[in-house]
Amino acid sequence: MRVRKSSGYCQLVAESFSAYLDRSLPASVEQEIAAHLEQCPECRQRLEGVKALVTDLKKLDGIEAGPEIAWSIKRAVRRLARREASMPSVRPLPFITSTVAAAILLIMVSMPGRMGNSPAQRSLSASPEIQTAQSPRWERYVLPAQVGEDNAPGLFEQQAAAQDSAAKREPSRIRGARAVRF
């Protein structure tokens, strides 16, 4: 077999190194490369280098994350799962809806007795302390509680989200600063 040698041909051989090492080339090509390698110390050296490199790269495996990292991932997934579960669009929280309905019903029931006074809506929005003075006793207990409860899921959700995003934002801010130095 005639052995070809030129820098262009050497480059062509180098481009087949991985396939040559995998032994996935057609037999005729493999023989041609083997013949070239025998004649060409540069290519031989380069191929030996690639083989050594592949061996060395394996030593880069086995970085261990450590169990704390797994734990913090699991905690983060749980936070996310809780937030998802408390999202009204995902689960409409039927008991809240029914208590709000009950509250509206109560207001409507209270209306006739307060017709001459002030609209019941005002007791929902503004200064309940002033209103409680004239409100029937049950209303004092029920109405502010209903308003509070209606707000509650939103507040908790925001809190959870704030905690979560604070926990997430903190490291990324540090990371941003570090990236500048890279």
Binding site: E15, F17, A19, Q45, R46, G49, V50, L53
Partner: peptide, 14 residues
């Protein structure tokens, strides 16, 4: 890409 990446690395670390 694998072959090219290996060659680049090898030539730097040769």
């Amino acid at each position: 890409r694998l072959n090219r990446g290996r060659l680049i690395l090898q030539d730097k670390l040769g």
